[in-house]
Nucleic acid binder design. Structure first.
Length: 768
DNA sequence: CAGTGAGCGAGCTTCCGCTTGACTT
């Protein structure tokens, strides 16, 4: 008997559904979109109602071929792609690509993969929704027009191969603007006062709600406290509660995996993908916080068994994010009673996180008691405040607590027993200078959070977008070392106030996103000429229009026409009238020659320049160092760059020079390069000839020892000593020497044999 | 591998959103 064909987007989903549907159905996957705008050129006819030219994606040729053959034999074809705009379009493209007859084609949808949901869907087939399809075409065409018209403007006006787009350019803008906020941030300081009292052998830690602006004020406060008495003025206890966070979406999973496990967003998605393929979790690209009824029921049982019925609380969550399409469930374990899975370290950790978050989302509130005590000072009007918190009922906190991006204030805990009117024994009071914190730089995950808030990008594109802006060189993910900063500390002990200057490290960063010079230049250029595209609300606004198209109120080509006319005019105007953008920034004048010094982007990246290109004397150029940027380099730092290369003297009648190159600082001597050992304190600005010679000789020695053996038969074959031990260099091929073979005894024939064997060896593949 | 920074011109680059493998070092 011929079987009906069901087509879904993901192969893992296909497997599960086939199980639920049983005999009469064969379930296959389209692997996402099968057709797209043709890769070459615009593929949108702007003079003919924006008629798109679609082509079957090259890597989908085989898929389409197979599906087409199966569809030809099937009595009915069920298009079960996702229930959102893209899913509807995939179904339509399948109709077109497989040349399906719509009379025996049925469109079905479900947003959870459970037996009942699927059987219910089969009972309610419909036709393709062309409103949604057209909304998707508008989305697709708009993105193509924006991307493929803006990018070439950048090639002409900034640098070849750059790119711009509705999503990536706004992502870069967020990072650039945050960096400028930080650069312009003035860290004002104030004195934070903390007093510690003794209550029956236990410490009572309190803080002054107000901070003192100056050291004088803080000092006089401490002196006033020296002979004061301290009395509990008021104690208040209030009940409070905490509620669990919603189950994971792609974005919240990426955030928590970043905070709790230190994963990058791409890593999170890779690990989640493998859990999904193993059937351990539901689909990982979702914007929905909904759990299936089945999942909530199992969660309830699991919680009751493990923690007691009073810890369970069935909850449904509403999505808060703009533009959510909710085609799937939230990310959850497929089996909620399984709290651990096999797999590598990262898989088990991510699974555990997902399990805990899901279970906690169905648990009772935590009930707390918060106590606030005011402590009066006999000599001043200010009062110290002590805060304590006691958990009365753990509820969901037994399982999981969501992390915050900024480290929290120290956890408040139980206060020692105190009552109004108690007179306290003061142990000490500290007034410590504290600086305001600059706005935080984005991590990959906090950028995703921001994009989601703005409704920009989709679960399937968050990770790729972040990798694109890095690949284009707009943004780098880096660690930065902090700087030393002095602060004042006043201590009151035994009635005496002492003051001291101390040092702290500030501004250290780990895995944060920084804009590059090119990122800033491109951003400023786009913002100046295409401000509407870079507007944080641009996506949200066009989404509203896509919705109108979906509802049938607006024709998609009309919407595009209204957008394209002014946009294209801007493109033309910018191409004609705008200057090349080089991010030029004047740094000042050369102290000796008075020539202008500027920083800008050159052909090979950021650089500083002394003198004019138009003037008769050729200007001097120097590349910026990796950690420098046009926006922040000072005149002094720029002048330093011109101090290299330095001539140190001569050795063996040849000049020895020091410089910094692409691979760090080096010494050059008779055509050879020797790297400086920065870790051992070598510095090209101060390096002396003696040390340079030492380095040159050391390099010569290594080179001499590098060659173990050469062969008369073939000069291209050598036995060498490399970084990882001895190996055979066979032309361009590097061959390992088997264990137990003494490298120096190898003959030419043996080398040839080993090289042959090595070639035949199947390339070892990385274990997952 | 440790440079370069002028200009010409051919031919290339580029978007966002759906999905996974099939390739190496």
């Amino acid at each position: 008997m011929a079987k009906d064909l069901v087509i879904v987007e993901s192969p893992a989903k296909a497997k599960t559904i086939e199980k639920y549907l049983g005999d009469g159905f064969i379930v296959k996957s389209s692997y996402g979109h099968v057709r797209d705008l043709a890769k070459k050129g615009l593929a949108v006819d702007v003079d003919n109602d924006f008629e798109p030219t679609y082509a079957i994606s090259p890597e989908k040729k085989d898929v389409v071929k197979e599906l087409k053959a199966l569809a030809a034999k099937a009595p009915s074809v069920w298009l079960a792609t996702d229930e959102d705009r893209e899913g509807e379009a995939i179904s339509w493209h399948l109709v077109e690509a497989l040349e399906l007859d719509e009379s025996r084609t049925k469109r079905i949808t479900f947003h959870e993969i459970t037996k009942s949901a699927i059987q219910e869907a089969i009972k309610n087939p419909r036709q393709i929704d062309y409103g949604l399809v057209n909304a998707q075409q508008a989305r697709r065409v708009l993105d193509r027009l924006v991307g493929f018209e803006l990018s070439p403007v950048l090639w002409k006006k900034v640098k070849p191969s750059l790119s711009a787009g509705r999503v990536q350019s706004v992502s870069v803008r967020l990072i650039v603007e945050r960096e400028r906020d930080i650069l312009n941030f003035e860290a004002k300081s104030s004195f934070r006062v903390v007093a510690v009292f003794n209550v029956g052998g236990k410490e009572l830690r309190t803080e002054l709600p107000k901070r003192f602006k100056t050291e004088e004020e803080a000092n006089s406060f401490l002196n006033d406290c020296a002979n004061a008495s301290f009395t509990i003025d008021n104690v208040e206890t209030k009940p409070a509660k905490r509620s669990p966070a919603a189950p994971f979406t792609t974005s919240t999973l990426q955030q928590e995996a970043s905070r709790k496990l230190g994963f990058g967003v791409a890593q999170t998605m890779r690990v989640a993908q493998s859990l999904y393929e193993g059937g351990k979790i539901t689909y990982m690209r979702t914007d929905s916080v909904t759990l299936s009824q089945l999942a909530m029921d199992t969660a309830k049982q699991t919680i009751a068994t493990r923690y007691g019925e009073d810890h369970s609380q069935t909850r449904t969550y509403q999505t808060k994010s703009k533009g959510a399409q909710e085609a799937h469930e939230a990310i959850r374990p497929t089996l909620l009673d399984v709290d651990k899975v096999d797999g590598d370290h990262n898989e088990t950790r991510l699974y555990e996180l997902i399990w805990k978050r899901t279970i906690a989302s169905q648990m009772a509130d935590a009930r707390l008691e918060r106590t606030t005590a005011q402590i009066a000072i006999s000599t001043r009007d200010e009062q110290f405040v002590a805060k304590g918190e006691v958990i009365k009922f753990e509820g969901f906190l037994k399982v999981y607590l969501e992390s915050k991006d900024d480290e929290e204030e120290e956890d408040s805990s139980l206060l020692p027993p105190i009552a109004q009117g108690d007179v306290l024994e003061m142990k000490g009071i500290d007034a410590i200078e504290r600086f305001d914190r600059n706005p935080p730089r984005y991590t990959e995950a906090s950028l995703v959070k921001k994009l989601e808030e703005l409704g920009i990008g989709r679960p399937s594109t968050y990770a790729p977008t972040i990798s694109t802006v890095q690949k284009r060189g707009y943004v780098v993910k880096e660690d930065r070392e902090g700087k030393q900063r002095a602060y004042r500390e006043l201590l009151l002990r035994n009635g005496i106030v002492s003051a001291e200057t101390k040092n702290e490290v500030t501004g250290a960063e780990r895995s944060k996103l920084f804009p590059t010079d090119i990122g800033m230049v491109v951003n400023d250029f786009l913002l100046e000429h295409f401000g509407n595209i870079l507007d944080y609300n641009f996506t949200a606004n066009v989404e509203k229009e896509f919705d109108q198209i979906a509802e049938g109120g607006v024709e998609w080509n009309e919407m595009i026409r209204r957008f394209y006319k002014p946009f294209h005019a801007d493109v033309e105007k910018t191409l004609e009238t705008s200057e090349r953008a080089s991010g030029e920034r004047a740094l000042g004048e050369h102290p000796e020659t008075g020539k202008k010094i500027i920083a800008r982007i050159g052909r090979y990246g950021p650089m500083v320049q002394v003198g004019d290109t138009e003037s008769e004397e050729k200007p001097q150029f120097a590349s910026l160092r990796k950690e420098q940027s046009i926006a922040s380099i000072t005149l002094e730092e720029a002048l330093d760059l011109f101090k290299l290369p330095r001539t140190l003297g001569t050795y063996e009648d040849e000049e020895v020079t020091a410089n910094v190159g692409r691979f760090g600082p080096y010494v050059r001597h008779s055509g050879k390069f020797v790297s400086l050992k920065v870790k051992e304190g070598d510095d090209p600005m101060t390096l002396e000839l003696e040390r340079a010679i030492e380095l040159i000789e050391a390099k010569r020695k290594v080179d001499r020892e590098k060659l173990i053996k050469e062969f008369e038969e073939n000069k291209d074959v050598q036995v060498l000593n490399g970084r990882y031990g001895p190996y055979i260099k066979f032309g361009k091929q590097n061959v390992r020497i088997p264990k137990g073979t003494e490298p120096a005894t190898l003959t030419y024939d043996q080398c040839v044999e080993l090289a042959e064997e090595d070639k035949k060896k199947p390339k070892r593949r990385k274990k997952k």
